[in-house]
């Protein structure tokens, strides 16, 4: 009889409930379109090509961080240290590049030193999180809150609290000013990363294992999936993606900023969750992360253009997060 109780919760899906499930699946995209049209009627500039490009570019950063969070949210975790890690990577890469510049390295090797330093710092943060969570059994909340503090400390110490200047132009050309057929670098990079990550999540052993671990960690262990290794990889991937985003943001500001990450951790979680990534694990992916990022960006862009007070925007964002999870809950309930 041991099997029957959970079976209750997941009754056979009837045609009607499947239809309702479909409706919930489309709730967010529909809301997004409605929102967009509403803002467009309120202010014609919303539809202008410049603004559309702006939205796309803005979304690409948020989406990258939301994708990073989605990777670990799928495993029933999250990463609070993402924001400080972004600051740390920004400062670390900038310090490495300025040091290389003063040593007289040529711009290309300076660029590589910066990229490698940044990504390595990110990967190291992720490995720390993953090892503490998977091997020591500490909850993701405490583990990443710990590295949150550690990363803040390192970022402010390395930079002495001030922006780190003196990076080669090539860096910001590659990651910010450059474009491919007129499409800004940030968008190009995010699209490429998104496609690769999507393939990784849906077509590789790692991705498959990630979803199974997130859905039922005990069953995954019994089936011989190396649960701990999968978790460590997930956190390392999350922080590496965040590091890439940090490098892109650094290229945009033109200096290594110790406060660059700010409240990015929670914003990224919010975007991923609003898009339909479930904190209960096993559900979501690149699609939900991008959708959530787009929604949050369109919302703030529209509110900015229609001159809604920034403080009111915070309230709206808070409400959207709650409504988002309540809807998600309802969507799960229909299953």
């Amino acid at each position: 009889m041991a099997d029957l109780a959970p079976a209750l919760a997941l009754a056979e899906t009837s045609a009607r409930s499947r239809w309702r499930e479909q409706l919930w699946q489309w709730a967010l995209p529909i809301a997004l379109v409605v929102l967009f049209l509403a803002f467009a009627t309120a202010d014609s500039r919303v539809f202008s090509p410049a603004n559309l490009l702006n939205i796309a570019q803005q979304t690409s950063y948020v989406a990258l961080f939301a994708m990073a969070q989605a990777v670990v949210i799928i495993t029933r975790g999250f990463d609070l240290s993402l924001g400080p890690a972004v600051s740390m990577v920004s400062v670390g890469a900038a310090v490495a590049m300025t040091a290389a510049v003063t040593n007289g390295s040529d711009p290309v090797s300076v660029l590589f030193i910066g990229l490698i330093a940044g990504l390595a710092l990110g990967a190291a943060t992720g490995l720390f999180n993953g090892v503490v969570i998977a091997l020591l059994g500490v909850s993701p909340f405490v583990a990443t809150l710990g590295s949150y503090n550690i990363a803040i400390g390192i970022a402010t110490t390395l930079s002495a609290g001030k922006p780190v200047q003196g990076m080669p132009d090539l860096f910001s050309t590659l990651l910010y000013r450059g474009n491919v057929f007129g499409v800004p670098a940030a968008i190009v990079i995010t699209v490429i990363v998104g496609v690769i990550l999507h393939v990784a999540l849906t077509r590789t052993v790692f991705g498959r294992s990630l979803y199974i671990v997130g859905t039922n960690p005990r069953a995954a262990a019994v089936a011989g999936i190396p649960v701990r290794r999968v978790l460590v990889c997930a956190y390392a991937l999350c922080s590496s993606l965040a590091a890439l985003g940090a490098l892109m943001l650094t290229a945009r500001t033109g200096s290594g900023e110790p406060n660059l990450g700010g409240s990015l951790s929670l914003q990224a979680i919010a975007a991923a969750v609003v898009g339909g990534t479930s904190l209960a694990g096993g559900r979501g992916g690149v699609g939900t992360a991008v959708l959530g990022a787009l929604f949050v960006t369109v919302l703030s862009n529209g509110m900015n253009l229609t001159r809604i007070d920034g403080y009111v925007q915070m309230v709206v964002l808070g409400a959207i997060i709650i409504v988002g999870v309540v809807l998600d809950r309802a969507r799960l309930g229909t299953r």
């Binding site: 999250f78 909340f141 929670l266 979680i269 919010a270 969750v273 904190l279 209960a280 007070d309 920034g310 403080y311 009111v312 925007q313 915070m314 309230v315 709206v316 964002l317 808070g318 409400a319 959207i320 997060i321 709650i322 988002g324 999870v325 309540v326 809950r329």
Partner: peptide, 27 residues
């Protein structure tokens, strides 16, 4: 109420009210 009645995770709900409360304070 969100946690108990709507069965939403406390983490996300308080994340939302955090943003909202801070916003109201600043408003």
């Amino acid at each position: 109420i969100c946690v108990a009645k709507l069965k939403v995770s406390g983490f996300v709900v308080t994340l939302g009210t955090m943003s909202a409360a801070a916003g109201v304070g600043l408003m």
